[in-house]
Amino acid sequence: MDKKNKTTITVIHLLGFHIPHAVTFLVFFVFFLIYCVTICANLLIISLVSYSKSLHSPMYFFLSQLSVSDILLASAVLPNMLHAFLEENIPTISFSNCVTQLYFFSVSECSECLLLTLMSYDRYLAICKPLHYTLLMSHQFCWITVITSWSLSFLVALFYNFVISTLQFCGPNIIDHFFCDFVPILKLSCSDTTIVQLELTSTTVVFGFIPVIIIIVSYVHIIVTIFKIPSITGRQKVFSTCSSHLIVVSMFYGTLLFVYLVPRRGQSLNITKFMSLLYTVLTPLMNPIIYSLRNKDLKQVVGRIANNCLKLLFHRY
C-alpha cells in the first residue's frame, strides 16, 4: 500500500490489565491509595531534607532529588492508569498524550539511573575515602552533578521522542500494556524501525548499563573495605549506611533489566506487565519507605517534628 494512502494513528487503545468488572473499583482504590502515599511520602522526604540542618549532607541531597524523580515517574504512569480503570470500554489515549507520557517516563527513568549512580559514588567516598570525602563531595560538586543528571535526562528523553517522531504510524493502534513504553510504540509503526531500535538500544546501554557497572564497582570497593574492619559491630554500622541504597538499587535495576534485557520470547505479556508495574509503581512507593524505616537520621527528624507539633498542640489547650 502506498504511504500516502495510509492513515496516521491519532488514538491508541491501551489494553492494560484484564481485571474482572466486580473488583474494578477495589483495584482502582488500591492504586489510588498507592499514588497518594507515593506522592506524600516523597514530598515528606523532600520537606525533611529541606527543613532539617542535620540532613544537609550530600547523601540526603541526592535522596531528595531521587524523591523528585519518583514523583515524576509515578505521575507519568499512575493517573492515566487510574483513568483507565474507570473506562467501561477499552481505555484510549491520544497519540500526542502517549508520546508525552513516554517523554516524562524517559526523563524519570534516566534521572533515577544517574541519581542512584551518584548515591553509590557518595557511599563509596564516605566509606572508602573518608579523609577526602568533604573535599571531593563538596556542595558545588553535588549541585553540578545533579543539574547535569537532570539536563542529560531531559535531553535523552527529547532524543527518544525526536527519533520516534521520524517514524510513520499507521496501525494497528492497540498496545497490550498499561502505559506507553518504547517497544509497544515501535510495534505500531509501519516504517522500518531497525535503525531507530539500534539508536535507542545504544542510548539505553550508555545510560543504563554504564551506571550499573559504576554501581557494581563502587560496591565491590565498599564490601572489600567493610571486610577490612576488625570488629563485627563496626562492619554492621558501616554497612547500615549503604544498605538502604543497595536494596533500592537491586529492586530498581533487577526489574528494569529483566524487562528490557531478557529476550521477549522468554517472557509472557503478563510477566512483562507485572515486572513493569514493579519499577513504575512500586519502586517510587518503596524508595521513601525503605529509606525512612532503615535510616536513624530521618526517623530522629520525624520524631523531633512530631514532638514539636505535640508541644504546640498541648500548649494551646
Rank of each mutant, 00 (worst) to 15 (best):
P91H: 09
W150G: 02
H245M: 03
S138K: 14
F154C: 12
W150R: 03
V107S: 02
I147K: 08
F104R: 11
I195F: 14
I214T: 08
F25G: 02
Q101A: 12
Q197L: 05
C180T: 03
D70F: 11
V68A: 09
T117M: 12
I164N: 00
I147L: 15
L14H: 13
P211H: 04
F252N: 02
I90G: 03
F252T: 00
N80I: 06
E199D: 04
C40Q: 03
A157L: 10
F61T: 15
F28V: 00
R265F: 14
T145A: 10
N173G: 04
V259E: 02
F162Q: 12
Y279L: 08
I174R: 09
L167Y: 03
L114F: 05
H132W: 14
V301W: 00
I19L: 10
N89R: 11
P172Q: 07
I210W: 04
L136Q: 15
S54E: 15
S138M: 05
A76P: 05
V212H: 09
S268L: 06
P91S: 07
I164W: 01
S189Q: 07
T283H: 15
S67C: 12
C110V: 07
F258P: 02
K228P: 02
M275Q: 08
Q267C: 06
T166R: 09
V196S: 13
P58M: 04
T280P: 04
D122I: 01
F258E: 03
A157N: 06
A76D: 04
G303A: 14
S120A: 14
P284N: 05
V224H: 07
S231L: 03
I45F: 01
C128Y: 01
S120I: 00
L186E: 04
L63N: 07
K237N: 11
L78A: 13
S165M: 09
T204Q: 06
I127K: 00
T10D: 08
T117S: 03
V27L: 02
L15H: 11
F178A: 10
S276W: 15
T193Y: 10
